[in-house]
């Protein structure tokens, strides 16, 4: 069957690609060149390069960068230590389970936790500190985002650490490398692919977050995602929304190329 090309099964799949992969991209690009009345214009692109939007893009980048950085800083040691535990796959499973709880519920929990009367402020009060406004700050936004993304960063890093041949580490140690040198020269380079895919699954969604910004950052933080949602569903300016989306797609492609892995020819 594999030899005689049977195109039958491919038919619905090709339709799917045409309708939901190619058509949406074409439509987004098309709409980005329309103004509010549906006339052809490049004004949206001019707008995008105005200081307001450029600043928003930069802040969005900055937040996404911070979120990715902190996620990586916490995820890497976790993944590393997990591979050293006895029942590592069971522990990994326990890391994954929270990621299956609905995103909205987890975000909602933080509204209570960071609230004025929440446990964090109750804890601070024990030390004689006044209740702080934690919700609607940069800190709360970044913390919640890191919390949401951390399992997705741990999984690829865990997998690449798990695949690594441990004798390489022993060899490095036997040859006199310190733990730090071993990590820097042996372990980290060997797991860089896992780190890259972790960055991919964190950075791109972090750029386009809009639900967490609304609930936790209370409109303080505007990311590219928030801007798109705003243009589409609030201002009803689909043209401008599509323009931002076009740039988000371009950024996404650049990140994919930067973090792209040499495919080992599995599918050749």
């Amino acid at each position: 069957m594999f030899n005689k090309a049977s195109k039958g099964p491919l038919f619905p799949y090709i339709i799917w690609i045409a309708l939901f992969v190619i058509a949406p991209i074409v439509l987004i690009v098309y709409y980005s060149m329309l103004d509010l009345n549906g006339n052809f214009t490049l004004a949206n692109y001019r707008n995008f390069f105005s200081p307001v939007y450029l600043k928003m893009t930069l802040t969005s980048f900055w937040y996404a960068f911070l979120i990715t950085l902190f996620t990586l800083l916490f995820a890497y040691p976790t993944a590393y230590l997990l591979t050293r535990t006895k029942h590592k796959h069971l522990w990994l499973m326990l890391i994954i389970i929270p990621s299956w709880i609905n995103l909205l519920l987890k975000t909602y929990a933080f509204i209570g936790i960071f609230g004025l009367y929440g446990p964090i402020n109750a804890f601070l009060e024990v030390f004689g500190l006044d209740p702080q406004q934690i919700l609607f700050t940069d800190f709360s936004f970044i913390f919640v985002s890191v919390y949401i993304f951390i399992p997705f960063m741990i999984i690829p890093i865990f997998n690449s650490l798990d695949k690594m041949n441990p004798t390489l580490v022993y060899a490095a140690r036997d040859l006199g490398a310190s733990s730090f040198t071993t990590f820097r020269r042996v372990i980290f380079p060997l797991t860089i692919d896992g780190v890259k895919s972790g960055i991919q699954v964190t950075f791109i969604p972090a750029l386009s977050l809009f639900m967490i910004t609304r609930l936790i950052a209370g409109n303080q933080v505007i990311t590219l995602g928030t801007a798109i949602e705003q243009q589409f569903l609030v201002s009803q300016n689909w043209g401008m929304g599509s323009t931002i989306a076009v740039f988000l797609i371009i950024i996404m492609v650049i990140i994919m190329l930067l973090t792209g892995q040499k495919k080992g020819g599995r599918i050749q």
Binding site: F20, I25, L27, I228, L248
Partner: peptide, 23 residues
């Protein structure tokens, strides 16, 4: 085909949502 397959996996949700709304 495989690259096209992966487009929706890596695309940000907002972009998918917005483009489907247009569609």
């Amino acid at each position: 085909l495989l690259s096209l397959n992966n487009v929706l996996i890596v695309s940000p949700d907002v972009v998918i949502g917005a483009s489907f709304l247009i569609l």
